[in-house]
Amino acid sequence: MMLMQIKNLSVTVNAKAGGKKILDDVSLQISQRSIFALVGGSGSGKSTTGLSILRLLDPGLTISSGEVLFSGRDILKLPPEQLRQVRGKDIAMVFQEPLYAFNPVLPIGRQIEEVFLSHTDFSPQKRTAETLRLLDIVGIKEPRRVYKSYAHQLSGGMRQRAMIAQAVALKPKLIIADEPTSSLDVTLQARIIELFMKLRDDLNLSVLLITHDLGIVEHMADTVAVMNGGQIIETGAVTQVLKNPQHSYTQELLTYAGRT
């Protein structure tokens, strides 16, 4: 079943002065319980696509056309308050470097709790209990210690797990993961990928995986779209695209990833 559909999304930089399109007519479909990978080189527009879904683009960038349909509603047309409800509750985001994605002056636990604070009316005790439970779910051994720690006191893997705990707090339907493993070493990457797969099955969610690592795509994703220069140049099932790339840019990507 279809969860989200992006139709003809275009994003323009410096729209007033004529502007230049950095996303050009991007369309994609993410079905429920699937992992959709968005692959491409630096500056190809992967992250911009992810951020436009939540309408969190830099002020200089404007969405010039298109629709983002999410459970029947166009996110791009939602009033601010409803948009805020979608963020975190229906769609959550995981960032590349959790060290920067956590506020350095607040303990991790307090920051995860903020999700409950702004979307639920849980009592403080319930918020803490839920947070500890979440930290346990994402495979953190000592939830109580992590709860009180600051971001810089944790290892990279722990931080990323905490970040994922925060993202799944309200059982969102979609998680946008922007290079979630790029700052981790190879063994940790594998664990985080396993975690994503497990959460997908347990919590019934979809993942929009933004990455440049084709190895991860192969392991994890069901569908893949390849981006270059702000356009989707090729899309299809992972097995199909990686085995039999149609577009020359995809072939190039595969060559440099060492799998021709």
Partner: peptide, 15 residues
């Protein structure tokens, strides 16, 4: 980035 992260979680501007 943590401000962006807070926005993605749907925190209100004042928070």
């Amino acid at each position: 980035e943590y401000v962006l992260a807070a926005k993605t979680m749907g925190l209100s501007d004042l928070t």
